[in-house]
Structures are given as C-alpha cells and as structure tokens.
Design a binder for these strands. Structure first.
Lengths: 191, 191
DNA sequence: CGCATTTCGTTGACATGTCAACTAACAATA
DNA sequence: TATTGTTAGTTGACATGTCAACGAAATGCG
C-alpha cells in the first residue's frame, strides 16, 4: 500500500473525480497515516465534496470572470473593485486607509495599485483636507466612464457563470452560509 | 442624487453592511444609471447577498487559512497544493503538464514555483522516461515529511474556520451548488 | 509647551505570477 | 528519411503583491 496523505480515493468516475484534487489532502484514509496523522478528524464524504467543490469552483470562476472582465472592459479584478468602491462612495472619494480596510488590502498594496491606476488616468490622489498625513482617492471622469461601462457587462458575466446557474433555494442557503462564516471570521480579526 | 453604479444601498445595519462592498457594483438601482446601464439585470436582494457574501467569505477565509498554514507549517497555499497533489499520486510522482492542468495553473507558473520549492528541498525534477521532452516532479523525503505534518493542522484550520461552522444541510447544498457551477465552467473550457 | 507614541501613507527590496519567445523532442506525412 | 507542424517545458522581461523601514503629521500626556 502506497503512502498518501488525505487519500480516501473514492470510486473512479464519481462526483469527486469531476471536482478534482485542488486543495486536497483534507479527506483522510482514517488511520492509514502513521505518526503525526493520528487522531485527526479528516473530512467526511459530504464535507470533502463541499470543500473541494468550493475550492474548484473558486478557481474556475475566478479564471472565467477575470477573462471576461479583461476582454469586455480592459480591467483587472483589482481595478474593478477599486473603481466600484469609489463609485459607490459619497462624492466618489475615499480615504486610502478606509478603502484598504474595506477591501481587505494592505495599505501598501493599495498605494502601489493606485499609482498604476493613476498613470492610466482612472483615479487621482488628493491631499486630505482634514488630516495632513492622509490622502483621498477620487474617481476621474475616465474612471467613472470605465466603471459605468464595465459594471453591466460584469453583472452579465456573474449571472451567466454563477447566479443564473443556481436555484433560489441554493442562493438563499449560500447567502446564509457565507454570512455565518463571515461573521465568524470577522470576530477573529477583532478579538 | 449622487451618481453611482450598482448602488441599491439597503438600510444601514442590515446584513448587507456586514458583508461590505467587496465585489460590488453588481446590485443595481434599476434605471438610476443612465446610458450604458439600460436594460441591465442587476442582482436582486437575495442574489446580491449571496454574491457579496461569497466574495467576502472567500477573501477572509483565504487570509485566515493562509495565515494558519504559514504559522503552523511554514508553507504557502501554493506549496501545500503542490505537495498535496504529489502525495496523492501514484509513487509520489507526476508529469508537470498533468499537475499544472489539474491545479489549473499555467506551465510557466508551475515551472517557476517548483524551481523555488526545489531549492528548499521539498521536491525534485526528473527526466521523464517515456517522453524525452518531459519532466516528472517527485516528492523528496523532506517534502513528504512536510505534507505529512502540515495536512492534519490544515484540516483542523479548515474545520475550525469553515466546515464546522456549517450545518449538514448547508454542507450538502454547498456541495451540490459548487458541483453545478464547476460542471458548467468545465464545459466552457472544452466547448 | 515639549516629548514620546501612534497613525497615515509611501517607498524599495524582494517574492510571486503572467506573457511571449524559445529549445528540444515527438508526431504525421510525403 | 526529410519536412513540417505540434507539444513539453524553460526562460527572461515585466506586472503585481508582500514585507519592513521610513518620514510626516496627529495624538497623548507630563
């Protein structure tokens, strides 16, 4: 018997195969693993299916949406998120720190990224009136046109490849489930 | 009324606010957007909740699991996936192209990455016996020890932050739902 | 006020991923 | 076999993200 971690290979041709092994080594062969693997609660069949499915969906969906967005609008995901958040903010302007926190980006990442977006004319930095250290990011006219044109196509893409594939019940459960996990992870950051 | 894309801001303090606006500009204010936005089917309340929730969970979960994995095992997600797939393959060896395709990575990315992992002694390249152009990747002893020790801790982390937060029903629906989307996206690649 | 501490954002060095050009070997065919 | 096209993988240039060090301004407190 060949050694393996998280083997638990199920019959060929079943759903697990279609899902593939991205993010594997989480479904265990019980006590097949010696040493450090003792007493580990590997994922069960349904759990493994959900976890691997999530991982694979995530990878495939990312590739597809990124491809669509670049082709349709010439924007990266990161570009889109920055423009989208700016477009939804009051007066199309945001403090850098607030934007970074909201997007879960480091300040450094945001700073580098908006430098590049600034060179393309999509956004502009401004000194912050209320805080001498700070800076605000604003949407340029070109940035506004870009997000206004990109958003409908992006929603189409999200619908075609994701939302419209799901039943109302699946969407309801997904919303409920993600909220639960987001709440949990949010508490970790704080506490 | 200030211009915005995908506004549809709902009452402050409700679930949408907790989720935040990562990946926004998908819930529309109907005909509030002029020009290119006409006739777009923006996401409904439940749809927006699911989509934004998915986006935010994805971001937070990624941060947490990456942090845990680095702290507990000194590996990146990419390292873990490579080692995991190798450990599950017959004789701990895989053709580079096969591995890249399975992980949905470019060959280039894999080539660069295993060069770095090779320098750390986790994997080794070999000439492929059956194809003179090809190469195989193999797990070194150190790589085997690394994944054997990392896997249980990683499963713990996945359980703590994700799987164990969900009900059996939520897990069932998630597995079903991701399989649907994966099937759809798989057909796109081929067709 | 004067001084230490914290916060805001930038910067440069480095790690990682992408893209296109490239070499070598296989495959198909005349 | 010689030619042509295809496939496997590598490489270097460049784009992007991370990390720690930094300067400047705000804040806290004697």
């Amino acid at each position: 018997m060949s050694e393996e971690v998280g083997g638990a290979v199920r019959g060929a041709g079943d759903a697990a195969d279609a899902v593939g092994a991205v993010g594997s080594a989480v479904r265990g062969a019980g006590d097949a693993v010696g040493g450090a693997g003792e007493g580990v609660q590997w994922l069960s069949g349904e759990e493994g299916r959900a976890w691997l499915g999530y991982r694979r969906m995530r990878a495939l969906l990312d590739l597809q949406l990124t491809r669509d967005l670049a082709r349709d609008s010439g924007l990266s995901d990161a570009d889109y998120d920055v423009l989208s958040n700016l477009s939804e903010s009051a007066e199309h302007r945001l403090r850098l720190g607030d934007l970074a926190a909201h997007m879960l980006w480091s300040k450094s990442r945001l700073s580098h990224h908006i430098t590049r977006m600034g060179q393309r004319g999509l956004v502009a930095r401004r000194d912050c009136p209320s805080d001498g250290r700070g800076a605000e990011l604003t949407l340029t006219d070109a940035g506004w046109e870009a997000i206004k044109s990109a958003a409908p196509r992006h929603v189409d893409s999200v619908r075609r490849h994701f939302i419209d594939r799901l039943s109302a019940e699946q969407i309801r459960v997904l919303g409920e489930l993600t909220e639960t996990v987001v709440d949990h992870l949010g508490r970790i950051q704080d506490g």
